[in-house]
Amino acid sequence: MSVIPDGTPVVLLNAFPVDRAQWDPLIDAMADIDALPGDVISFDMPGIGEMPIPDEEPSLELIADAAVAAMRETTGHDAAVWIGCSMGGYVAMAVAERHPDAVAGLGLIATRSTADTREAHENRLAMAAAMDGAPGVPDPRAMAEDLVGTQGPGRAALVDAIAANIATHSGAGIAWGQRAMAARPDRTAVLAEIDGPAVVIGGEHDKLVSSHDIAVMAEALFIEPVLVYGVGHLAAFEAPQEVARLLAPLTAG
């Protein structure tokens, strides 16, 4: 866990399977436009980065409960703005369901509120089984290629950075995350109960989350979705200045 030193805290929840370094460009961009009035906390997921794998069964709810407790202990605030990308979005929605009083605002990036389809569920469990006991992802670059949507001369550096990040994580961590995501329920109805500002952001070239997925969440929140052009699944890493501008209303006032 890392903290950047008051106003409402911001909690950043990672995509799978990268660590909290994915947020560094966004943190810089939000600081540049004075969109960070309080503490900023970024969490690695269990088995990713510096976060150990817990003894408990894989569960997004476990992460959500721990994140709320850590946020409150670290900042002294009862509520924060929760910003999650992909798996981090799933955790943010679990926070909203289990700890609604901890949510002062919600930013959902390249994620979905629905549960996995049967095929997606089975694919996650198959990947988890393949990763048990493995040193890590066999082809980090191939996985990174699917996460980055940017085209042109800037693409190679972004893919290299994400591939290098993915390569540092163990197979056990990958397996834990896949099983946790496979077990998640549909939380679309939870979004309709959110009492605070919200932003839903998608990437034009996202291969993993569709524009329909983004629209479902936005409709439940009674807001308009925003599509960031020219980027993929890791929109905040690929276009940090644009995403910072879109997220800024969550921390205003």
Rank of each mutant, 00 (worst) to 15 (best):
S2A: 10
S2Y: 13
V3M: 08
P5G: 08
G7D: 10
V10D: 02
V10K: 03
V11C: 06
N14E: 12
A15L: 11
F16A: 07
P17V: 13
R20G: 07
R20N: 14
R20M: 09
Q22C: 14
D24G: 14
D24Q: 15
P25N: 13
A35K: 02
L36R: 00
I41C: 13
D44K: 15
M45R: 10
M51F: 06
P52M: 09
I53K: 08
E56G: 15
E56H: 12
P58G: 12
S59I: 05
L60V: 12
E61N: 11
A64T: 01
A70I: 09
R72G: 10
H77M: 07
D78P: 02
D78Q: 15
A79M: 11
A79L: 11
A80D: 05
A80E: 01
A80K: 05
W82M: 00
W82R: 05
C85D: 03
S86M: 06
S86F: 08
G88M: 12
G88N: 11
G89Q: 01
A92W: 01
M93R: 07
M93K: 00
A94C: 09
A96W: 00
E97D: 15
R98E: 11
H99N: 10
G105L: 00
L106V: 00
L108W: 00
I109C: 05
A110T: 11
T111F: 00
S113P: 00
T114H: 04
D116K: 07
E119D: 12
N123M: 11
L125Q: 08
L125M: 09
L125T: 03
L125S: 15
A128P: 04
A130N: 10
D132G: 06
G136R: 09
D139F: 15
P140T: 12
P140H: 15
R141W: 09
T150I: 06
T150H: 07
Q151S: 14
G152S: 11
P153K: 14
R155C: 14
A164W: 05
A164N: 15
A164V: 05
I166S: 04
A167H: 15
A167N: 13
T168S: 14
T168F: 09
A172Q: 14
G173F: 11
G173A: 15
A175I: 04
Q178W: 01
A182M: 03
A182H: 05
P185F: 08
T188D: 02
V190R: 02
L191E: 00
L191P: 01
I194N: 12
D195V: 04
G196S: 06
V199D: 00
I201W: 01
G202D: 01
G203D: 04
E204L: 01
H205A: 06
S210W: 09
S211W: 02
H212L: 08
A218G: 05
A220Y: 00
F222H: 12
E224M: 11
E224R: 07
E224H: 10
P225D: 04
V226G: 02
L227Q: 09
H233A: 04
H233W: 04
H233D: 10
L234W: 05
L234I: 14
A235E: 13
P240M: 08
E242A: 07
V243C: 00
A244P: 03
R245C: 06
L246W: 03
L247I: 06
T251C: 13
A252K: 14
G253L: 11
G253F: 11
